[in-house]
Amino acid sequence: MGLMIEDKQFVIPGQRLAEGMDYLPANGTYREEDNIYSAQLGIVNVVGRLVKVISLSGRYIPKTGDTVIGKITNIGFNGWMVDINYAYESALSLKEATSDFIERGADLTKYFDFGEIIVANVINVTKSKAIDLSMKGPGLRKLKGGKLIEVTSSKVPRIIGKQGSMITLIKNATNCKIIIGQNGWVWILGDDLNDEMLAAAAILKIEQEAHTSGLTDKISAFLKENSK
């Protein structure tokens, strides 16, 4: 009876997590007869009676409230289609894009043109996987210049750090503006190309070593070593 594993343990699909009816299956798990099994590769999280598995790999899956970086792929009569590194395209409607009055038939490329990069908020994800974006909110805007890199979306929290500690460290050391989308796209703008390259290298280093401890110190040393 009870849990077969420890909290925060890594598990693989099909592994038995709990026995008996004391626990309830949540995300990434399923019940079969009396047992709860893992359905994903990841780390176990036990909250009260709920047992869930948090995936640490794979593609980005949007959730309402996520801030993402996207690329304009198409312009329609009613708004824009945006690629946010997901299997489904997301839509940015006119209403959510700007508070300006836009006349019928106006040229929408004035606001966002093909291939332009924006930072937006996910406001709705429907059952049929239609994703709505919004540009209304602090810091949501078009991104001009700079450089865009891609990291695994599950490593994003590590790159940001506790209360933004890690990203602040990189920003201060390299003097770059950095915006991280939950979808794993990272936008970097610095005064100098070398600064941008250093910031990108630091972020990719975090991605690679995300599961190791003492990462802040390592990155701090890495930045110091390479900033000359």
């Binding site: 699909p13 990434g28 990841g42 593609r59």
Partner: peptide, 9 residues
């Protein structure tokens, strides 16, 4: 499994 997909077993 590495791709984070739902696999029963």
């Amino acid at each position: 499994a590495d791709a984070g997909l739902i696999i029963k077993d």
